[in-house]
Design a protein around this nucleic acid. Structure first.
Lengths: 338, 338
DNA sequence: CTGTTAGCGCGTTCAT
DNA sequence: ATGAACGCGCTAACAG
């Protein structure tokens, strides 16, 4: 592996001149530049980022730590992050925690040692410990998608409570009174917020909360399947389901199929976040859609700003809104239902 | 950010002693060790891997460069890789190329500059250029899943031709004669091999190859959907479909649904690699299943061996075999079909 | 426009 | 059992 010194010797200049050519920093005559460039090419020189970063105190790399890369929502977020990063010359290291705090802590520790310039962080659970690991080292961090209570930190997320509330309003306007929510983990803020929106809408409508209609579990299809079966075994049966994320919706639809319940004739269902066409039979689900790409893009842009302009006044909390898409999975309640 | 020197000062020892404590190298008295450890804890010291790696010429990190992390097949491979890596104290950087050579080259370049210790490489296309980038820098590499012709390189993959052949034998034994294959990209070896197995089985059975029954496109559901519609518009219509990967199968099943064709009554279908239960209505597909986890695990183990024991005699080519799982998507041809 | 010096944080080598 | 000196590859700071 050739070093900058090898290139310098071959080009008949000092190492620093090679550095200047390769980094486009400082003045170099056209002729010298060409000599250096061809020397580098001939030697197949590859700059050593370890050395460069050690000297410059920058890796031009930040981490995107998220919870489930197989979920198309996160894939889209990641695309937004990548685009913003590459526009500013940053590399992204993607780490998948599977919602496990242990995996998350291992990643954070490795990334800190590797001196990443910053973190885009989707906390696996709403605990503050992991975040503190980062903040103690004074590395910039933007919390993405989720909220950690009582902590001053830059955040980009979507208003889950409001999205949830609006979905519920839609169902209530269709005459539904017995509505179940299949939520995510109890200690994840998006799940809490969606439950909150659900409760508030029901209370506002003068409907008593039935706790058996509130299920909490993982943000997965398996979990959605199980939760759906539980609430559908209740009598009177709910006339509408609210799946708190896209994978839960997939599992719930499967349960409905098994029970021979037609959507929307026999039961209505709404969800949070879209699915690519091939995950379900057809894109017919009424949903609240979060601006996934924008979330990623804006969060990355903010992080990069924090990295490149460390001084700032106060933290930002960016709260985006979701769009309600009414499709064919909801209909007015029929008199015989329930 | 505290450095090793800060810790040394606080503990009243030389930096090298701190180094010895943190790396468990050399002799340190129990008392000194404890003083150093508590000093490190108090200062919340985080070792700088850049400096360490620059000195030691190792990053204890290798890259897994693959083509589609959203595909459960690759997710499983990645799990095998991660497990093998963590057993040996290695970190994995996962990079997703989306089958795009440009993205792939950008990643390889960055990773080389970051001095990764090795590559687990799924070439986006069967070209040798990208691989040469790595080999010129004398970084260990194991090619995974795919074959690059006429190149001496360690490889771990599955025998696609044989898996394909056996699926075809199964269909032929059920009496099918008009069988379409929905394959992946023409320049990806697994796709080529699956077509080869298809052709050989048909030729052996004395069936003339109809080129209109051989479709090539991406390894995606969208592509599977399009290819299925094309071959299903032919007359006489094929009596069986062979989807060359799991996502193609998802798309093909969707097309069959649209056309109102029942599986297996109206048409048989076989696939390559399983899908988690929630991707399709039910796990009823007859498939060739590759040992995804083992592929990842073995490939990572081989790579780590190459990294830690650079001298070896000759390259290895590990060829695993797939298992045929006969389920309910295939049945003997009825006389009226076609 | 180009070069010299020094040092980023760490671990190897050799000394004590 | 502990420490001093040095250098990994690169670039900031300061000449000239």
């Amino acid at each position: 592996m050739a070093t900058i010194r090898d290139v310098a010797e071959r080009a008949g200049v000092a190492p620093i001149t090679v550095s200047r050519v390769l980094n486009n920093s400082g003045y170099v005559s056209q002729e010298t530049r060409e000599r250096v460039e061809s020397a580098a090419a001939e030697l197949e020189y590859v700059p050593n980022m370890l050395a460069r970063s050690l000297r410059s105190n920058r890796t031009d790399t930040f981490a995107l730590v998220l919870t489930d890369i197989t979920n198309p929502f996160w894939t889209t977020v990641a695309r937004g992050v990548e685009d913003a990063a590459s526009e500013h010359g940053f590399n992204v290291i993607l780490c998948n925690t599977d919602e496990q705090v242990s995996k998350q802590e291992r990643y954070l520790s490795v990334l800190l040692r590797k001196q990443v310039d910053g973190f885009l962080f989707v906390p696996a659970r709403s605990r503050t410990e992991s975040l503190d690991m980062i903040r103690k080292q004074a590395v910039p961090v933007v919390v993405l998608d989720r909220h950690i209570p009582n902590v001053d930190v830059d955040t980009v997320r979507c208003n889950s409570e409001r999205g949830s509330y609006r979905l519920l309003r839609h169902l209530l306007e269709l005459g539904h009174r017995r509505i179940a929510i299949l939520a995510g983990p109890q200690d994840v803020s998006t799940s809490q917020d969606r439950i909150l929106g659900y409760r508030n809408a029901l209370i506002e409508a003068g409907i008593e909360i039935d706790d058996r209609l509130i299920e909490c579990n993982e943000y997965t299809a398996e979990s959605g399947y199980l939760m759906a079966h539980r609430v559908l075994s209740l009598r009177p049966r709910p006339t509408a389901l609210f799946a708190a994320n896209n994978f839960i919706a997939v599992g719930a639809l499967r349960a409905l199929r098994e029970l021979g319940l037609q959507v929307p004739q026999d039961i209505s269902i709404v969800g949070f976040d879209d699915l690519p066409p091939y995950y379900i039979i057809e894109p017919f689900l009424t949903v609240a859609v979060q601006p996934a790409y924008t979330m990623g893009y804006k969060a990355a842009t903010l992080l990069i700003e924090r990295i490149t302009q460390p001084v700032h006044d106060g933290f930002q909390e960016l709260l985006l809104s979701s769009e309600i898409k009414i499709r064919r999975s909801t209909q007015a309640i029929s008199n015989g239902a329930g």
